[in-house]
């Protein structure tokens, strides 16, 4: 099993529903977030000004610098390739935050490092991640890459995509559709 997410940058309207859904589902304290919206603008007025939104979160990389740098083993990979942090093993040293090319982690006010879990507690119940469930434009597609019939496998086959910071060699599992 290899969980992955595709994000359609052409459909996203930047409403941030995914951010609030995650905050409420995962009790993320106000002022912090596990997923966030990036607005990218290209060009200068009046030439072709282009804009798109990206909904970003932990990329659940195949090659995980965060797990390698963790001195206590709190950062680890579970079934399906989900990168997780065991809160009571984390000493809050933030080495993983330095190692992550995507700024996907933050120090929780309670002293541990926190991040996206692909809502593994929901996946266990056969549900989708909270962000996917609330997205009003259905621009987030989640599933198992090992299953060729999954929505995410199909869409990545059909459409052009890119990943962020490929030069970091992390093989991230959040794919952005062009």
């Amino acid at each position: 099993m290899r969980y992955a997410m595709a994000m359609d940058t052409r459909k996203c309207v930047g409403c941030s529903d995914c951010v609030v859904a995650c905050q409420t589902e995962n009790n993320v304290p106000l002022g912090y977030c596990r997923d966030w919206i990036v607005e990218a603008v290209k060009g200068t007025y009046p030439d072709t000004v282009q804009m798109h939104f990206k909904s970003e979160r932990c990329m659940h990389c195949e090659n995980t610098p965060c797990v390698r740098t963790c001195p206590t083993g709190a950062s680890h990979v579970i079934e399906g390739g989900i990168v997780k942090v065991t809160h009571d093993e984390c000493i809050g040293c933030a080495a993983c935050i330095e190692a992550c090319p995507y700024e996907a982690r933050y120090v929780h006010p309670d002293g541990y490092v926190d991040k996206c879990t692909f809502c593994d507690h929901r996946l266990e119940q056969g549900l989708n991640t909270a962000c996917v469930d609330v997205c009003p434009t259905s621009c987030l597609i989640f599933g198992d890459l090992d299953d060729p019939k999954s929505d995410v496998s199909k869409i990545l086959k059909e459409k052009d995509w890119y990943v962020l910071a490929p030069e970091a060699g992390t093989n991230p599992q959040l794919y952005f559709l062009k």
């Binding site: 002022g31 990036v38 990218a40």
Partner: peptide, 18 residues
């Protein structure tokens, strides 16, 4: 003061990129 956090930084990041 209380609302300064991770998210605000991310939003700044966005501007730098654009």
């Amino acid at each position: 003061e209380a609302t300064k956090g991770h998210k605000q930084e991310s939003h700044k990041k966005e501007e730098a990129k654009s």
